[in-house]
């Protein structure tokens, strides 16, 4: 929008309040929202981690062992656990929001929210189990 209400000629007496930088600390709801926004960093982190894993695999055995050694350090484990919790939070809130963004109408009636969220969760669980089976069941 071109027009702005920050300054309006001839109306110096309107009182304008400034939003504090810390607005999101004032309510638990907004705090949770910012946590959710931040959780996308954890998603990026895991993508980068996966790329690093693939890259070191491609570099040969020594490089892969080096990667594994890194992953075993307590600092890395702690960091990964925290990042994982963030990703979990991100996924759960994402699935809960899905019905809001994609309402499905059947016969002119809107399906209840859980009917859209549930298949999302189911797919998540199934895919996770299959991947876990591949990784853990392999040896």
């Amino acid at each position: 929008m071109k027009q702005s209400h920050a300054y309006t000629l001839y109306h110096p007496k309107w009182y304008r309040r400034r939003v504090s930088t810390w607005w999101w600390t004032q309510q638990w709801r907004s705090f949770k929202f910012i946590l959710r926004e931040l959780s996308s960093l954890a998603v990026i982190y895991f993508v980068a981690l996966l790329l690093w894993l693939l890259w070191s695999l491609g570099q040969g055995e020594a490089s892969y062992r080096n990667f594994l050694a890194w992953m075993e350090s307590p600092l890395m484990i702690a960091f990964n656990v925290i990042a994982f919790l963030f990703v979990l939070y991100h996924s759960i809130t994402w699935f809960n929001l899905a019905p809001k963004a994609m309402p499905v109408r059947v016969g002119g009636k809107r399906l209840p929210d859980w009917m859209i969220a549930a298949p999302n969760y189911a797919a998540w669980v199934v895919i996770s189990v299959v991947i876990a089976w591949f990784i853990l069941g392999g040896n």
């Binding site: 209400h5 009182y15 304008r16 309040r17 939003v19």
Partner: peptide, 8 residues
Amino acid sequence: PLRYFPIV
């Protein structure tokens, strides 16, 4: 008054 709007 409603938040975020200038107050008259």
